[in-house]
Amino acid sequence: MIELSDVHKSFGKVEVLKGITASVDKGEVVCIIGPSGSGKSTILRCINGLESYDRGTISIEGLRVNRDARSIVAIRTQVSMVFQRFNLFPHRTALDNVIEGPLYVKKEPRAAALERGRALLAQVGLADKADVHPPQLSGGQQQRVAIARALAMQPKAILFDEPTSALDPELVGDVLGVMRKLADDGMTMVVVTHEIGFARDVADRVLFIDGGVIVEQGPAKAVLNQPQHPRTQDFLRRVLHPL
């Protein structure tokens, strides 16, 4: 469904992606792990058209991701993104945030958007928060609103950029629970995460990125329980057994 072939990306003189080739099948959950600054989030931003890439190709169901307006709109109606910092409009209610895309991007009738928006808030456990503004919600609740907003576009896939890293530890479980349910329901997901337990339990495959290249990839349990590359072994040891 999502194909990346020899993707390169530089910021100034710094080459962040150095030839990424990977694919994601329909209904698959792929987790991307690696140290900070390794290029994980840049991969997602290139897939969703938030960043241009310098060389190679990215396509979604055969449609090449380019930076022209028509391509970006087409991509974002198929692939939604959930950000680390929620990116909700603080002056709009939770429900208004959820229906923004369907109303203004997909031009849906307001009544239909409202009905589905309320159903999606209920799906993520926030039926009673529809009329609340984001600043009055906890971080975990805001992230669940962001997931409902992503689902409102009826996407074929969702990209998650470290969705729990800005949350207090006790709030992480609620967000991961929603994501587990999406995976169980067959949603195609690409997840940049430091939650190794989630990746082991939920992901079909794991990519370990370091220095802008894929160092190791394979079935989640194989990579995470028996990593073959010394760099992967060192990273997991540091993450799972910090001093």
Rank of each mutant, 00 (worst) to 15 (best):
E3S: 12
E3F: 05
E3V: 12
L4M: 15
L4R: 05
S5N: 14
S5I: 07
V7C: 06
K9T: 00
K9V: 03
F11L: 01
G12R: 00
L17C: 11
I20R: 02
T21I: 09
V24W: 05
V29W: 08
V30D: 08
C31R: 00
I32N: 03
I33Q: 00
G34H: 00
S36F: 09
S38W: 01
G39S: 05
S41K: 03
E51P: 03
G56R: 00
I60Y: 10
E61H: 03
L63R: 14
L63I: 09
L63M: 13
I72V: 14
A74D: 13
I75D: 07
T77N: 10
T77I: 06
Q78R: 15
S80Q: 03
Q84I: 02
Q84C: 03
R85A: 14
F86D: 00
N87A: 12
F89M: 08
P90L: 03
H91W: 13
H91P: 04
R92A: 13
A94C: 11
A94I: 02
L95K: 10
L95M: 11
V98H: 13
E100D: 15
P102D: 08
Y104M: 09
P109K: 13
A111D: 09
A112H: 02
A112F: 01
E115N: 11
E115D: 14
A122V: 07
A122Q: 13
V124P: 00
A127G: 11
D128S: 15
D131N: 14
P135S: 10
Q141L: 08
Q142S: 08
R144K: 12
I147R: 06
R149P: 10
A152G: 13
P155R: 04
F160T: 01
D161L: 06
D161F: 06
D161W: 06
E162I: 07
E162P: 04
P163H: 09
D168V: 06
E170A: 11
E170N: 13
L171M: 15
V172T: 14
V172H: 10
D174S: 15
V175C: 09
V175E: 11
L176C: 12
L176E: 08
A183L: 07
A183N: 12
D184Q: 14
T188S: 12
V191I: 15
H194P: 02
I196V: 09
D201R: 09
V206K: 00
L207T: 06
L207M: 12
F208Y: 12
D210Q: 12
G211A: 11
I214R: 00
I214A: 03
V215F: 02
E216F: 04
G218Y: 06
A222C: 01
A222Y: 00
L224Y: 06
N225Y: 05
Q226N: 15
P227V: 01
F235T: 04
F235H: 02
L236I: 03
R238M: 07
R238P: 02
V239Q: 11
L240K: 03
L243Y: 11
L243W: 11
L243S: 15
